[in-house]
Write a protein that binds this DNA or RNA. Structure first.
Length: 424
RNA sequence: GGGGAGAUACCAAAGUGGCCAACUGGGGCGGACUGUAAAUCCGCUGUCUCUGACUUCACAGGUUCGAAUCCUGUUCUCCCCA
């Protein structure tokens, strides 16, 4: 099944801007790339949009290249950044890059013979590129006035931009040129903030290769309906790495998205066709939570695994469903362990547990907060233990609760869960 | 180089000798209502041995019964002139 890539991106709401002739280019199987910054050892939800661009590209019969900016990551892209950033050292970048590669392998098909995906690292072609050559062969072709006109640079002229970050567009431009000549890559995609960098590449290619046809597609930056950044909630980024964001938390994140963002998210992240998505929306028009569950299920399965999804779902059912204490008791220990897996946990020996003087102390310890804060929360009716609100009176006394399965206490702070485990 | 203004809690911003753990707004957290949503309303938002005590208003000293507020020095930031 080959789809019309540009058409598909359009109905998915993933086209912000593109070069005029790109549609013609895409009538033939084409190679395209998206760049990723190895600034962390995991991709996050923001990167997931770019990754989906490549997924849809490959499904449409084109060849995707994921470029990991081992070199450019050492420079720092000024786009969307209000101030100069710290440079990462080489070892960190190398490590991050390997981790990111592993994550990408879940999404793209590297085995197919027809249009296998590929991951490249621009450090490979920069490491032996000397300054003189770079300035003669690349820098010569773009003018300062052209470079200064870019929004990413304009926005920084007041607050300051180093020559290093200013040069970034040349590097990214050359990346495109390199891929164009070595991998026959004709198209670069990215977030709308990348437009300036991409066109710099197109400009460079057209200077170096007179008949060249290089193109760009950018996609809107993912934001919440209130305009704030998506996937960067309170506790920071939502990562794809299970060690940084547990599958349970990941799953919960999608269940908790704003209703208003649903149509947008379904279209970007669900790999179904247009009719199916519309059908889902009609079927669940009165029940946005069902839609969120589908969204959460699909993305969690895609990023983690079916098993992880099932555990997350099970945990959510138990923790947020109508579940009462009896249901926890009725669940077998192994399952319960899995349900509790993603929760912050404090473990004590029976002796240690005995020595905790008051329930307030216990709460402070379990939630890793100060005693004053624990006190405030309890006074504000904000803490439950084993699904029952903690009274102020109880809080001042020595903990006296029935342990679930004779070893767990489930403590709730609002909607968040914490676990205390007492070893026998 | 010369002149001026400022540094207050997560951020912004009041306070200019006792009524200040410090107005207010944002953010965050909790509660109510709901659908684990949004909107709305309410409460909390330094620490502790918690109806009280203790440590905070750039840093170090000083004046005073008493300082975020006055004085001295230090560091940093911003603005204007050259």
């Amino acid at each position: 099944m080959k789809t019309n890539f540009l058409h598909e991106l359009t109905w998915r709401g993933m086209v912000h801007n593109h070069t005029p002739e790109v549609e013609k280019l895409l009538q033939q199987p084409t190679t395209a790339y998206v760049g990723f910054d190895p600034t962390a050892d995991s991709l996050h939800i923001g990167n997931l949009v770019s990754l989906m661009l490549l997924v849809y590209l490959q499904r449409a019969g084109h060849t995707p290249i994921a470029l990991i900016g081992g070199a450019t990551g050492m420079i720092g892209d000024p786009s969307g950044k209000s101030k100069e950033r710290n440079l990462l050292d080489e070892d960190t970048i190398r490590y991050n890059l390997e981790r990111i590669k592993l994550q990408m392998q879940k999404f793209l098909d590297f085995e197919t013979t027809e249009n296998p995906a590929e991951i490249v690292n621009n450090y490979d072609w920069y490491k032996n590129f000397n300054v003189i050559d770079f300035l003669r062969n690349v820098g010569k072709h773009l003018t300062i006035s052209y470079m200064i006109a870019k929004d990413s640079v304009q926005n920084r002229l007041e607050t300051g931009i180093s020559f290093t970050e200013f040069s970034y567009q040349l590097l990214q431009g050359y990346d495109f040129y390199w891929l164009y000549t070595h991998k026959n890559c004709r198209l670069q995609m990215g977030g709308s903030d990348q437009w300036g960098n991409i066109t710099a590449g197109i400009e460079l290619i057209s200077k170096l290769i007179p008949q060249a046809q290089a193109h760009a597609i950018t996609c809107p930056l993912l934001t919440k309906s209130d305009g704030s950044k998506f996937g960067k909630s309170e506790q920071g980024n939502i990562w794809l790495d299970a060690n940084k964001t547990s599958p349970y938390k990941f799953y919960q994140f999608w269940l908790n998205v704003d209703d208003k963002d649903l149509p947008k998210l379904l279209r970007i992240f669900l790999p179904f066709d247009q009719a199916t998505i519309k059908q889902l929306e009609t079927d669940n028009a009165q029940n946005p939570n069902a839609l969120k569950r589908i969204l959460a299920k699909e993305i969690t399965t895609m990023v983690h695994s079916v098993e992880d999804y099932q555990k997350a779902e099970q945990a959510s059912q138990l923790l947020y469903g109508k579940a009462v204490l009896e249901q926890f008791e009725a669940t077998d220990l192994a399952t319960l362990q899995e349900v509790f897996e993603g929760l912050p946990r404090q473990t004590y020996t029976a002796k240690e547990f005995e020595s905790i003087a008051t329930t307030t102390d216990l709460v402070a310890l379990a939630l890793q907060i100060s005693k004053s804060e624990a006190n405030r929360l309890i006074k504000g009716n904000g803490v439950s233990i084993n699904k029952t609100k903690l009274t102020i009176e109880q809080a001042t006394q020595k903990p006296n609760f029935t342990l679930l399965k004779e070893q767990f206490l489930l403590i709730q702070k609002g909607k968040q869960y914490f676990l205390v485990e007492v070893l026998k």
